[in-house]
Simulated scan of single mutants.
Amino acid sequence: MNKLKIALALTPILLCTILSAQKIKPKDVRKDMKRVADWQIEHYKDPYTWDEVHHPLDWTNGALYVGMVKWAQMANDDTYFNWLKGIGEEQEWKLWERTYHADDHTVGQMYCELYRKYGDEKMIEPTQKQFDFIMYHPSQSKLNWGTPFHQDRWNWCDALFMSPPVWAKLYKITGEKKYLDFMVSEYQATTNFLFDTEENLYYRDESFMGKLDNGTKIFWARGNGWVFAGLANILAELDPESDEYAYFLGIYRKMANKLIDIQTPQGHWAMSLLGQDFYPTPETSGSSFFIFGLAWGINNGILDYDTYEPAVRKGWNAMTSYITKEGMLGYVQPIGAGPGKAWPDKTEVYGTGAFLSAGSEVYKLYSK
């Protein structure tokens, strides 16, 4: 009986060890990405953990498009680009409703990438016009949570994925540094406000500062996933010799070093990053963003392969184990603003986007 108890106790550890050691084959990465992308397109207009279907220009779908573009670029199949282009045409290439709100800028990342492929000015004209207006009429609101019009600036960490990469892409596309200067100034303000220099992680917003969850500071996994993935997407647009690149690289390196220290034995990251013991449920949206960012860093010679590759391998193997036989990515935490719950049979479009982003860099990593 004692031997049986020991064996049962060791089983999860052995499974984690086997999973983390499993080799990753590029052809399998492509296969899993296609399965998840195809399932998501088929179910694009279905409700998930939210009561209503998301608007095509909502941030949820904007995050999906970020990953879907990366898949389209490696799929050797115009189906995916045509699907994305159809959405842009249907929406007349506009951003969504709120002029200043970062969430409503997210879709601009997809517009910029489609412009790069097709060279059609109409794809980015509305975004550029709106961003010009923001620059010349900057919000005067404070970053404190709950002050009037507070989300007209990036005072929650999710925003650092949604809007700054669009500014960086516009800078790269147009060559006009005003877009980069505005973005860096606002990004620095947010980082000075929300970045914890002891833990090298971001608070979701001011309301989490000074609070503890089971004795640990509260750093939301998906919130920091938004930041980390956004950093990779920003750095990809900048001159590696520039001061701006050095600024973002400094934050990126600090976060990367922290992330490999707090990855769970199972390969995912806890929904409250410092609270593994209290949040054992897997979560695939934040974890996929971390995998994307880490793999991107290795692929671009920023992160040491021997140090960081094991975290990517273990993480990717964990993510693919949560895909259902139909092709749905499970364990995506519903829309929220902090640590919560996730289920194996629940998904969300932004989780798919994060997974496809991760796969695009994992494929490159193991194709070398």
Rank of each mutant, 00 (worst) to 15 (best):
A311R: 12
A311P: 04
A311T: 14
V312G: 09
V312Y: 06
V312T: 02
R313T: 13
R313K: 13
R313H: 06
K314N: 14
K314W: 12
G315V: 07
W316S: 02
W316D: 04
W316H: 03
N317A: 01
N317Q: 03
N317M: 01
A318F: 09
A318M: 14
T320Y: 12
T320E: 09
T320M: 09
T320D: 08
T320V: 14
S321A: 09
S321F: 05
Y322N: 02
Y322E: 01
Y322L: 08
I323W: 06
I323A: 06
T324S: 12
T324N: 02
K325V: 11
E326K: 08
E326C: 00
E326H: 05
E326L: 02
G327Y: 06
G327V: 09
G327D: 02
M328N: 08
M328R: 03
L329Y: 00
G330R: 00
G330N: 06
G330E: 03
Y331F: 00
Y331M: 05
V332D: 04
V332M: 05
V332R: 01
Q333M: 06
P334C: 07
P334R: 09
I335W: 14
I335P: 05
I335M: 13
G336L: 11
A337W: 15
A337T: 15
A337Q: 15
A337I: 15
A337Y: 15
P339W: 12
P339S: 12
G340K: 10
G340T: 15
K341M: 15
K341G: 15
K341Y: 15
A342N: 07
A342S: 13
W343K: 14
W343V: 03
W343C: 01
W343M: 11
P344A: 06
P344C: 05
P344F: 00
D345I: 14
D345H: 13
D345Q: 14
D345K: 15
K346W: 10
K346R: 15
T347A: 04
E348R: 02
E348L: 05
V349W: 03
V349A: 05
Y350N: 01
Y350K: 06
G351D: 02
G351R: 02
G351I: 07
G351E: 00
G351T: 10
T352P: 00
G353D: 10
G353M: 03
G353P: 05
G353W: 05
A354E: 04
A354C: 04
A354H: 04
A354P: 00
F355D: 06
F355C: 00
F355I: 01
L356M: 03
L356D: 08
A358I: 11
G359M: 11
G359Y: 02
G359F: 06
S360G: 09
E361N: 09
E361Y: 10
V362E: 10
V362D: 08
V362P: 08
Y363N: 14
Y363K: 12
